[in-house]
């Protein structure tokens, strides 16, 4: 009994829990910076560690040592809560995603709904965080985040739920199980994959949907006023969110973790995650930023009808 609890604790805290995910997030940041650099014909991080692999960790430590300023105009309590929530919410969400085996750390009927909820809560946090700091750029950035949410939320929820129809369950674990018994959902719902990729770009506020933190317009959007430990947590939270989004896509559409030849499931899963990550980064690199009204118009004109179509098609194909 005691050893079981210890193993579970180890799973939550170390592998595949918090520590592993935080390290993965650092690695993902390095990969994103390196790939973006190479796409743009630059070097990317170079000096810290082999090919600059320790650079994100060095940045994190540097930020921890910086002065932590709370503006006088800021809402003190929320200004403190926002970074913590922004960092811990996606980290919590990871326990619902199957990584080392078909089963996630915790799973129950309807955990997909919880994931959807967490994604929305994060954006709501960004909005409130923007308002709490009292900076004009943050307020505009937060408003933009919330406005953008109105655009991508509906197609995102539709495409998150589409894989649930054939599997007949709202549990991520069941969906992964179903995919391994039948086929990857991307083969039957390629349109859904495209839509969820686009929506995740918007959720992660990557170009072309980075209007909420368009640096040439509103500096850093809702995180303009944060510094020191808070900024370090926010940046880490952002990276975790990035990994979370790619893991979710690879679990929902690319079959999740599976044993292949002698490679353990976690390896296969990580390969899938980084393929999705690479896709997102290269998409980011070849687009310019859309304006917020253009994002909304585009989402409502194209993405929502497409998502609804995908949903109806799946519903018809897999029976009422």
């Amino acid at each position: 009994m005691v050893s079981e609890t210890l193993i579970f604790l180890g799973q939550v805290l170390i592998f595949p829990g918090f520590l592993f995910i935080i390290l993965l997030a650092f690695f993902a940041e390095w990969a994103v910076r390196k790939i973006t650099g190479r796409i743009q014909n630059r070097l990317g991080p170079t000096y810290t560690g082999y090919m600059g692999i320790l650079q994100p960790i060095a940045d994190f430590i540097k930020l921890l040592r910086k002065e932590d300023i709370t503006p006088t105009m800021a809402d003190k309590i929320f200004f403190l809560i926002f970074p913590i929530m922004y960092f811990s919410l996606p980290l919590t969400a990871f326990s619902l995603i199957p990584m080392t085996e078909v089963q996630a750390l915790t799973y129950f009927e309807g955990d997909l709904i919880l994931l959807t909820f967490i994604f929305t809560i994060i954006t709501a946090m960004v909005f409130l965080g923007g308002f709490s700091s009292g900076n004009i750029f943050s307020i505009v950035g937060g408003t933009r985040s919330a406005t953008q949410l109105l655009g991508y939320e509906i197609p995102l929820v539709f495409t998150l739920l589409c894989p649930a129809i054939p599997a007949g369950s709202f549990s991520l674990t069941t969906i992964v199980e179903w995919q391994q018994n039948n086929s990857w959902i991307i083969w039957t719902q390629p349109l859904g994959f495209g839509i969820i990729l686009t929506c995740m770009l918007a959720e992660l506020e990557l170009t072309p949907f980075d209007a909420p933190e368009a640096e040439t317009e509103i500096v850093a959007g809702s995180i303009t006023e944060f510094s020191g430990v808070k900024l370090a947590l926010i940046r880490l939270g952002k990276n975790i969110k990035l990994v979370l989004a790619s893991s979710l896509i690879s679990a929902l559409y690319l079959g999740g973790p599976e044993q292949l030849w002698i490679l353990p499931p976690i390896m296969i899963f990580l390969i899938k995650v980084f393929v999705v990550l690479f896709l997102m980064v290269s998409l980011r690199a070849i687009f310019a930023r859309f304006r917020i009204d253009q994002i909304l118009a585009g989402m409502w004109k194209y993405l929502i009808p497409l998502a609804v179509t995908q949903f109806l098609l799946t519903k018809i194909l897999w029976g009422w």
Binding site: I35, G37, R38, I39, Q40, N41, R42, L43, T46, S282, A285, I286
Partner: peptide, 22 residues
């Protein structure tokens, strides 16, 4: 145009970076 640009972007990954390591 988008495909062309995407192609050039992907090609750059394997090209030598133009940065001078001063």
């Amino acid at each position: 145009v988008k495909t062309q640009f995407a192609f050039e972007a992907l090609k750059s990954i394997f090209k030598k970076p133009s940065t001078e390591e001063y």
